[in-house]
Design a binder for these strands. Structure first.
Lengths: 210, 210
DNA sequence: AAATTTTTTGACCGATTGGACAAACGTTAG
DNA sequence: CTAACGTTTGTCCAATCGGTCAAAAAATTT
């Protein structure tokens, strides 16, 4: 077992790598891994292709680095789901945070969706490891709430899936949402409309029958 | 305005075109439009690349033909949503049918998701036309149910979005769903679990307050 | 069977792509 | 200055890709 090297990096290397990752997020999220070219990423980062390849060994290297970072921020809202507060309030904040992420970080959402759609060829270990562990842990928290009669008894895993699906839909399927809502209702207000609807759906859908 | 030509086709042409479309569905849904190659589709269809290009003018030609057909079958469940029966029953059947489609036609779902994710560059007219028209029409039906007090007053468009999102999630994010549920719960039973959960969520979430 | 039309394929082409490489450029320390 | 090190780029290459074309093979018609 070899420990991961700390990898000494100069100030310029740290800065340029950030620049490249930002550019790559933009390009990958629009065109997917195969659809994006190193040239496009290099241009978006304001440098030449060989220069970019000086900071990252390969296109795939950029992609996996991006995905590794992404997963952390992407799972942050779920990590915050805590046992301390009122269950219904906790779930409502979780839904709100996820919807805010779909609004504020659509590129990250689409990048992730793209990867999963293709069968997660480059991040399967993270899905089976880190992500599954966290979901299982939070599913137990939710199960506790059900046992305590705070929310209706149902499947915690599918509950989490449904929150993911409904919120990320507004990032991943954004063009469809806009097109269907039309010019008048497809503006920025669509996220507030979505928030209202989802709150209604989940609050009433999970209210315990007494 | 030129009418679309009926395009005389021989028996072999009809058969081979079907063969190619089936192969293309397989390949496109796994790798996306850019990720797939004509060679791969040709091999999956059991013919040479030039032979395939004898039946379809280009890669894009295959893709648009596929998408045109797809949209019809894909919207079929929504078309069936009717004003005649009990509203709650109608919505439950719609959710069930959509979930069955995610189970039985995951390739179609992923192909569609892939296209929307990339900004729908090749089917935007269909989204803004046929799809929007149908959704608007059904949103009015749902609005009627709300006015009649049959289901809770909320946003019909976002209700439809949430049904699309939750059901298609089981096709588009299948590898993630399986990985998170694990070997024991990720088997074929996952669709019945999902059906139970979604029924619970939507039925209770939409129950009118009297 | 001959003639005609449809189907199939091997060979090829230009464009694009991921990546290598050496040389040039810049910076800093002795 | 100069040696050492980090950074940048022009040039090149092999592989892949979408698509063409002419000619052969197969099917259909006469």
């Amino acid at each position: 077992m070899e420990a991961v090297k700390p990898k000494r990096r100069t100030r310029i290397q740290l800065e340029k790598r950030e620049l490249i990752l930002e550019a790559a997020l933009e390009v990958f999220s629009q065109l997917g891994f195969r659809g994006a070219t190193i040239d496009q990423i290099a241009e978006a980062a304001g440098m030449s292709k060989p220069n970019l390849l000086y900071y990252f060994r390969s296109k795939e290297d950029i992609h996996v680095t991006l995905m590794q970072r992404l997963l952390d921020t992407w799972l942050a809202p779920l990590r915050e789901l805590d046992d301390v507060g009122d269950p219904m309030t906790e779930l409502r904040s979780y839904i709100r945070r996820k919807l805010e992420m779909a609004r504020d970080y659509p590129r990250e959402s689409r990048l992730f969706a793209n990867e999963i759609l293709q069968g997660a060829p480059r991040i399967m270990p993270m899905i089976e490891g880190e992500l599954k562990t966290l979901v299982d842990e939070k599913a137990q928290v939710i199960r506790g709430w059900m046992r305590a009669g705070k929310i209706v008894r149902t499947d915690p895993w599918h509950l989490i899936f449904s929150i993911w699906a409904t919120t990320q839909h507004y990032a991943d399927f954004d063009v469809q949402v806009r097109a269907v809502l039309g010019a008048d209702r497809g503006g920025e207000g669509r996220f507030e409309d979505a928030a209202r609807f989802l709150e209604q759906l989940f609050v009433e859908g999970l209210r315990p029958k007494d």
